[in-house]
Design a protein around this nucleic acid. Sequence first.
DNA 1: GCTATACTGAACCACATGGTACAGTTTTGT
DNA 2: ACAAAACTGTACCATGTGGTTCAGTATAGC
Lengths: 118, 118
Amino acid sequence: MVQFCPADFDASFGALSDATRRGILEQLGRADASISVLAETFRMTLTGMKKHIGVLERAGLVRTEKVGRVRTCKLGRCGLEQEAAWIERHRQLWAARFDQLEIVVEEMKRKEKADEPK
Amino acid sequence: MVQFCPADFDASFGALSDATRRGILEQLGRADASISVLAETFRMTLTGMKKHIGVLERAGLVRTEKVGRVRTCKLGRCGLEQEAAWIERHRQLWAARFDQLEIVVEEMKRKEKADEPK
DNA sequence: GCTATACTGAACCACATGGTACAGTTTTGT
DNA sequence: ACAAAACTGTACCATGTGGTTCAGTATAGC
């Protein structure tokens, strides 16, 4: 069950930072597709689409297979799990920081009340 | 409770695609810091660090406040929630696709078995 | 065998990125 | 008043990005 997913965050987050590429992932989530179909869907040259697929492939988010003259693109094997984990870990840091902040705010309120004239 | 977080995925995923910036977030998760402290930590000029902070700020992941000559950087208000949601949604698409794949594999195995000579 | 399809590779373009240096400006401390 | 600290802005550089065109190559269908 151990999968070999190096999780290059530079590559994967970089790949996700483009709307077209997020669209491609969405598309491939519904059905596999060839380069030409994707190029047509996103109104782009074959060469342009090929580059996007290259970026997604290097990030491990998409894998492709060429049969005859058609290269079929599918979702990658181990997509987004490590990325989700990274984000989740940091959301916890975030939350912790704001809990601290709330304590400070609480302190300030108490102090304010204590300073209030009767 | 409604927070105004436009969630520009281009900006936020783009910001996360750099190791230095992920490091800055990690750092700010532990404690607020000034530009100069961050610059020193990541062995970089003030100008360079200022740019990274600019990127993180535009992505809404960091907010800063200048008091006197010191600009203090903190984690942003609504960090990573929408990004986590996007990824989670797509992890489900991923899973669905592989369930389908498993069905196909299942079919193939049954067919193979049926074609087996007695 | 010929033609259309589907991709591939190279070259180019405008612009963004990650970094630098250097010359300010505003505050702080003495 | 002056110097040092902490930023800010501009300019520069090499490289990467998102796209294009154009000229191939390989395969499919007649």
